[in-house]
Design a protein around this nucleic acid. Sequence first.
DNA 1: TGTGTCAACTAGTGTC
DNA 2: GACACTAGTTGACACA
Length: 208
Amino acid sequence: MGEEDHCNIGLALGIGLGGGGGEFNLSRRRHAEAEAKPPVQFDVLFPFQVEEGKEQVQSKSTEDDDNGGTRKKLRLNKEQSSLLEDCFRTQHTLSPAQKHDIARKLNLKPRQVEVWFQNRRARTKLKQIEVDCEFLRRCCESLTDENRRLKRELTELQSARPGVPAYYVEIQKAAMVSICPTCEKAAMDDVKSVKDWSINPRKDYKLC
DNA sequence: TGTGTCAACTAGTGTC
DNA sequence: GACACTAGTTGACACA
């Protein structure tokens, strides 16, 4: 389903406050009070701002239409969505003054702008979680492969030296790894085999 | 009609 | 205490 289609519909109906039957709680009351104040004007020009005189797309505000207590679904139109997106690209949170300014420019209520940004942040976070999940899944796959490979290698080593416990072979292998004191990278000595190492157990570090 | 999307909501938490 | 935020939920709507 294309979101752009939604934008074109522009139903722009009202939303009944507390339409879901829930209480208009204290927090919301504070918002309503705050928004009753005249919008703060400021000089900063945001990317979302449109030129003066340019036609604004109309959205009916919340209290314009009570609709008998039923909450009507408002769809922001294309212009409103794209300007909000533009703004979101530059910053993910808004100061009250910015919020009022965007609302004024888009002919929306500051509360609507605030809600849009809250929901947008939530969507962004969700997307990021999905990306992170996919990355971890790939890491897990890669480690599983590596684990399989090491197990195979271990089996081969065990069959090459029957009678020697697997962990002992691994310990001997680990003992052959030297840490370079300059670059701190692990480096295998010149030892070609465990047998070779047992003859010449300690070699000097090879400096990088 | 089932499902996905999203604006708007509530409740709880953190910060100043 | 006021305010801004997040997480989770609700309900209207579009679409296959």
